[in-house]
Simulated assay, not measured.
Amino acid sequence: MRKPRKDRKEAGFTLVELMIVIAIIAILAAVAISQYSAYKNKAKAKDLVGFARACAMEIVTQCEADSSFNNATQLESCNLNNGTSKYLSNITIDASSFSGCNATFTITASGDLPNGDTYQAQCTYDVNNQDISCTAPRKQ
Rank of each mutant, 00 (worst) to 15 (best):
V49C: 07
K40C: 11
A30E: 09
K42A: 15
L28K: 03
S77F: 09
L80S: 01
A26C: 14
T61G: 08
K86H: 08
C55N: 00
S34F: 13
N41H: 11
T73R: 09
Y36T: 12
A52H: 03
A43W: 13
D47C: 05
C55S: 03
Y87G: 04
I93L: 04
L75K: 04
I33F: 14
E58Q: 14
Q74K: 11
A45T: 09
N70V: 02
R53Y: 06
S85K: 05
I20R: 05
A45W: 02
D47S: 13
K86Q: 12
L75N: 01
F69S: 00
C55A: 12
K46P: 01
D47L: 01
V60N: 02
S67D: 11
A29K: 08
R53S: 08
L88V: 03
G83S: 12
N79A: 11
T61F: 10
F51V: 04
A26H: 05
K86E: 13
L28N: 07
S34I: 14
L28V: 14
V21G: 10
E76V: 11
F51S: 03
A29G: 15
S34R: 14
G50W: 05
A45C: 12
M19Y: 06
Y87R: 04
S77Y: 02
I27M: 14
I22K: 03
Q35W: 10
A23M: 13
G50I: 06
L80Y: 04
A30I: 09
A52N: 08
V21A: 15
A72H: 02
V60C: 00
A56Q: 01
I22W: 07
